[in-house]
Computed example of a mutant assay.
Amino acid sequence: MADVDYKKITRDGLWTNNPATVQILGLCPLLAVTGTVVNALGLGLATLVVLMGSNAAVSMIRGYVTDAVRLPAFVMIIAALVTIIEMLMRAFTFELYEILGIFIPLIVTNCTVLGRADAFASKHPVLPSLVDGFMMGAGFLVILVILGALREVLGQGTLFDNMQLLFGPAAAGWRLEVIPDYPGFLLAVLPPGAFLGLGLIIAGKNVIDRRLKDARKARQAEAPKATRRVRTTGKV
């Protein structure tokens, strides 16, 4: 097997093949629970843990399952991990678990999780699979948090509200009032606001990609000119 390119795995998960902005997967929870940062962070961390665990488990059994039972076995692994996460959240972050509701069990149906298990973990050793799960989960988490922050600021004028639901009573003081005496903006906290926010994030990524591509083309076009100048003058 060829050497694994960890830089490519990292780049794919965080940017070039991000589950939320490129693959456009997991939109249902992405749009439904990102009204605040704490909600987005809770779901994002749960998804990241499931991605890492499922990738590692699938990689370990990849040589022992036949094609006939491959996908059912993957789904069983993912469902078991999601059940563990759900039980842990009910035990330690019950209020946040109630807010996220059905979207924690729905991680089982998240196409990103099953997709990485089938496309990557079933073909690679454990360590690269763990890294791939972490990077894909981190990329999904970052977009969740950015969208949650955007909607929270626009919707209620605060940031990091109710962080104690995830990190305990000590995090109650993390709340920032970004816009004092803000009357609220209902559209930002409703599903249409989530669609608009995600569209802005994707548009921003596309603009950055286009500028990076143009800059790369400009450097490539400049390189032959510099080589010809060196050959003509005989100086570097």
Rank of each mutant, 00 (worst) to 15 (best):
A57H: 00
A57E: 02
A57V: 14
V58Q: 07
V58D: 11
S59N: 08
S59Q: 07
S59K: 04
S59W: 13
S59Y: 06
M60E: 13
M60D: 14
I61M: 11
R62A: 09
R62Q: 09
R62F: 03
R62V: 05
G63V: 10
Y64N: 01
Y64A: 00
V65L: 04
V65N: 01
V65D: 02
V65S: 02
V65I: 06
T66E: 14
T66C: 09
D67S: 04
D67V: 13
D67W: 12
D67F: 12
D67Q: 08
A68Q: 09
V69F: 15
V69E: 03
R70D: 11
R70L: 05
R70I: 03
R70P: 00
L71K: 01
L71W: 15
P72R: 05
P72G: 00
A73W: 02
A73S: 11
A73F: 04
A73Y: 10
F74P: 02
F74T: 15
F74Q: 07
V75W: 15
V75G: 01
V75P: 02
V75D: 01
M76D: 09
M76G: 14
I78V: 04
A79V: 02
A79W: 03
L81A: 01
L81R: 00
L81S: 01
L81H: 00
V82Q: 04
V82A: 08
T83Y: 05
T83N: 02
I84Q: 00
I84G: 00
I85H: 02
I85F: 02
E86K: 15
E86I: 03
M87V: 06
M87H: 14
M87S: 14
M87A: 10
L88T: 15
L88G: 12
L88E: 09
M89N: 12
M89E: 02
M89W: 07
R90F: 06
R90P: 00
A91E: 12
F92D: 05
F94C: 01
F94W: 10
E95C: 04
E95V: 09
E95L: 09
E95R: 07
L96N: 08
L96Q: 10
L96V: 09
Y97E: 15
Y97R: 13
Y97D: 13
Y97L: 14
E98D: 04
E98V: 13
E98C: 09
I99E: 12
I99C: 14
L100V: 11
L100I: 05
L100A: 07
G101Y: 09
G101K: 11
G101H: 10
I102M: 09
I102D: 07
I102E: 12
I102S: 11
I102T: 15
F103Y: 08
I104M: 01
I104H: 01
I104K: 00
P105Q: 05
L106V: 12
L106I: 11
I107E: 06
I107C: 08
I107H: 04
V108P: 13
T109Y: 13
T109C: 08
T109K: 03
N110E: 12
N110Q: 10
N110C: 15
N110P: 05
C111Y: 15
C111E: 06
C111M: 05
V113M: 06
V113F: 03
R116E: 05
R116M: 04
R116D: 10
